[in-house]
Design a protein around this nucleic acid. Structure first.
Lengths: 339, 339
DNA sequence: CTGTTAGCGCATTCAC
DNA sequence: GTGAATGCGCTAACAG
């Protein structure tokens, strides 16, 4: 099938190119009768609007880029879907790249998306991301970048959870519960989100008498394997804390499994708590206490912010934090102190 | 920052535009010294290659589209990541859209991607997809569409699991186990994959004496909620089968939860088996018997096939099935007949 | 081996 | 209200 252009359409409809163009954009300056004739011709010829050609003139592509680490973690999957929804609703098409937490791969993806003329980029930074290379790519083209869930720069917009508050809420709950010792397991060591959660836990535990060991070497990765590995490290060095706090629900799944491999029952022998509250959390046995971080809200907010920035690049860098909420379930609630 | 074009670069480097263009494409006809001068000028000026402009001439965009229903199901997440990887490796950037199993939304996404000049589309069809509207959009532009995991047309390429074989493998295992009755729970009723799994189970159960009721109204959705709902329907009408077969692992999670809500322990009171074998399956308690459907392989194969078709559209429609493999775990293995 | 030329399909002036 | 002319940044054909 040959390519049909606006030229063909306007010729068939007996109008000029510019008239057909105006009909496309829904201009009210064209009489309905003419517009209908044009639309009919488009349908008959099988005309397809060529956005690339339009882009060359208008200098916008109506595309956005999203780079996340890995969507097999349902939290990132939810975040990704929320952003796609917002982009779709605003008329944008979304490029998606998975960095697999590999900085170099991420840089390539940013570069490619910039070459593809994206109007903006949502970036959930791979651990180890730095401002200079990112901006080195991005500054040349003035493409706005919004940091998602983690940040590495104060100069770029950021939308994420209030990790500090999330840690505090959880710590206070564990304090009430009578827990006397806790460790955080899993998650990439140098991510801003992890550091903030540690800080929040420390703050929240202050004055509760809970022994929270932030120095234990249990940072791993943000998935089930990282949870298993972290638990193994802790138990192998002779620790047996009252509560294991998972960096995320994905991590918690591995923690449950590793505890059971060692004949410890989560929720009974060790309390387990976590962050994110993905759908799976309450379906597990025991149901998992988790601090909900509402990926849908983060996604919506991020989209709104990035679209604003596209319209007006002169705004100062924005930071927006979504309020988390603790969901208490049996993995902590049914736990009782050892006698 | 102003936009830098190849014109600017060639002027700065003291060569012509076409020379600069050839350097970009790595032509060997340019002396190294000249090429280096051009590359230096690009770096100094902060040149960004404009693929949209290139596309207008070369009539390819180096983009592909992927439309899936929902990636909160880890199976689709894995499939999506595999396809992104293959696309990335081949130098393509990937548009992603989530249809949320909504046909109309899916049509809009196809249309948008076609307008964005994608070179090809991976489509995991929403239930209810039909050939006419899809091709109505796509034929006008000659964009090849590959069906992923489910199909609705023989005229388009298809890559998926051998669902028939998967059902048979599982049925035979359950027959050996001494199961006397089984039902399939969850999944969208009219999807090709579900029909094939039912057929495979029926075939596999033939001669084993297992009573497999394919008429029971337990088709729902492909997620945990669908699993819970399906189990509720079955138990509420007084059935108590020896084995519940989940349409997918995501569904199985809801089945576990609903059984426990009704004081039935999965693996002991009811055997549970499933399809997909996502990472979570073996981490559950009891570990879930599942037929692995290898989303990574499907993704790789799909990418290879679609890229071939882009090169040569004259090939007849291709069908490619990936061989599944049964993973037996405690959710069936530990089950014993009621006495 | 290098430089000149002519569009790709559209949006946007500006005359009419 | 409508139509002709111009150029977005690049590639490819061809001439030097």
């Amino acid at each position: 099938m040959k390519k049909v252009t606006l030229d063909d359409v306007s010729r068939a409809a007996g109008v000029s190119r510019s008239t057909a163009s105006l009909v496309l954009r829904g201009s009210s300056r064209i009489p309905e009768a003419t517009a209908d004739r044009v639309r009919l011709a488009m349908a008959e010829l099988g005309y397809v609007y060529n956005r690339h050609a339009a882009n060359m003139r208008r200098n916008e592509s109506m595309t956005l880029g999203l780079i996340v680490t890995d969507i097999r973690n349902p939290y990132f999957a939810g975040l990704t879907m929320a952003i796609e929804e917002a982009a779709h609703d605003a008329g944008y098409t979304l490029f998606v790249g998975y960095s697999r937490d590999d900085v170099e791969r991420q840089y390539v993806q940013i570069e490619t998306m910039v070459q593809q003329q994206v109007d903006g980029i949502f970036l959930l930074p791979a651990t180890g991301s730095e401002l200079t290379p990112v901006c080195g790519i991005v500054d040349r083209s003035d493409v706005p970048v919004l940091q998602l869930a983690r940040y590495f720069s104060e100069e770029l917009d950021y939308v994420g959870t209030d990790n500090l508050g999330a840690g505090q809420q959880l710590a206070q709950h564990l304090g009430f519960l009578g827990v006397t010792s806790a460790v955080l397991v899993g998650g990439p060591e140098h991510s801003s989100a992890r550091k903030e959660r540690v800080k929040g836990l420390e703050t929240g535990f202050t004055g509760t008498g809970v022994d929270f060991d932030a120095t234990v070497n249990a940072a791993t990765t943000n998935n089930a394997a990282g949870g298993s590995l972290g638990v193994a490290r802790i138990l192998d060095q002779g620790m047996w804390p009252d509560c294991i706090v998972a960096y995320s629900d994905a991590v918690a799944l591995g923690i449950y499994a590793e505890l059971r491999r060692r004949n410890l029952e989560p929720g009974r022998d060790v309390a387990v708590a976590s962050f994110d509250d993905i759908a799976m959390a309450e379906l597990l046995l025991p149901p998992l206490t988790s601090v909900s971080t509402y990926p849908e809200l983060i996604g919506r907010e991020a989209a709104e912010l990035l679209l604003n920035r596209i319209r007006d690049s002169s705004l100062p860098p924005q930071r927006s934090l979504i309020e988390p909420a603790l969901k208490v379930r049996a993995s902590t609630a049914q736990w009782r102190p050892r006698t």
